[in-house]
Design a protein around this nucleic acid. Structure first.
Lengths: 143, 143
DNA sequence: ATGTTCATATTCACCAATAAGCATTTTATG
DNA sequence: CATAAAATGCTTATTGGTGAATATGAACAT
């Protein structure tokens, strides 16, 4: 299970450290693709296959579904973590996520998300997550 | 059952003593996450796994669900209590809860809460919590 | 009171993870 | 080919996490 929040920075070549605590779960080779809300998604190979299966099952006849599938598949790149724990983020993905230097990496259960620090801070300061809303959801889930 | 109020202080590296009386119930490894009202939550592994199962079942396509899952999973860290009864609180969590030195630790049944002393005092002095008000609410809940 | 034990606080030293800069190899292109 | 650009690899310094040692203080028994 992928959890936690980490902050690292891109080097001049666009490489990023994979936090040591996530390395084992994500695997040496993993898939990175455009994500929702302006971040990038990272999936272990297993999780990616599961995700692909879901995409495959969507009806080709539905325009929304076609868009959804194109979005994720066209953006997908396989990454390899090097001996020093780094991997290269393709430039189109860096651009998509507005990444320049500082990157926030979060574990979200079945996937990793990569955020430009700016976007992450903005996301968290928005009323996305009012305490009341969280509390309501917690009650619903019986915590 | 986790009960009681304790006060301890962070060392220079951000480690905190787990009160001896709570150690057995919370376990040697436990999960700490962002909580409500500016505190941190601590869950035993059992409690946490129950919660994780629920989070996993939420749909990726729903923005509310994504926000909720992100909040708890990105804010979660597994902690290990060392031989001296201490554990490290990740720096992003210390920051979230405005912890500098003095920390108040309270048992709240199924979880532990960690408060910066300042916030705890403020929380208790606010009209949040007059004994009368609590009593009224108890009546409402049929206690 | 006095000594004993246990819990907590504090400090230090060591080690692993990361950041950054530079060097080398590979690939693409004219 | 020759050259530039990109990718990959290596080295070093720094930071932060971890464990050990010691000090302090409270609780308890004698």
């Amino acid at each position: 299970m992928l959890i936690g929040e980490y902050e690292h920075s891109l080097d001049v070549k666009g490489r990023l450290i994979m936090p040591a605590k996530l390395r084992e779960s994500i695997g040496e080779n993993f898939i990175i693709t455009k994500g929702l809300d302006g971040c990038l998604f990272g999936f272990s190979k297993i999780e990616w296959e599961r995700f692909e299966e879901k995409l495959k099952s969507l009806p080709l006849t539905n325009k929304n579904a076609r868009d959804f599938v194109r979005f994720f598949l066209s953006g997908a790149v396989e990454c390899e973590i090097d001996k020093q724990g780094r991997f290269l983020i393709a430039s189109n993905l860096r651009e998509y996520a507005s990444m320049e230097k500082e990157v926030v990496i979060i574990g979200v259960g079945t996937r990793i998300e990569f955020w430009s620090k700016d976007k992450w801070l903005k996301y968290n300061s928005d009323e996305n997550m009012s305490a009341n809303e969280i509390a309501e959801n917690m009650t619903m889930l019986g915590i």
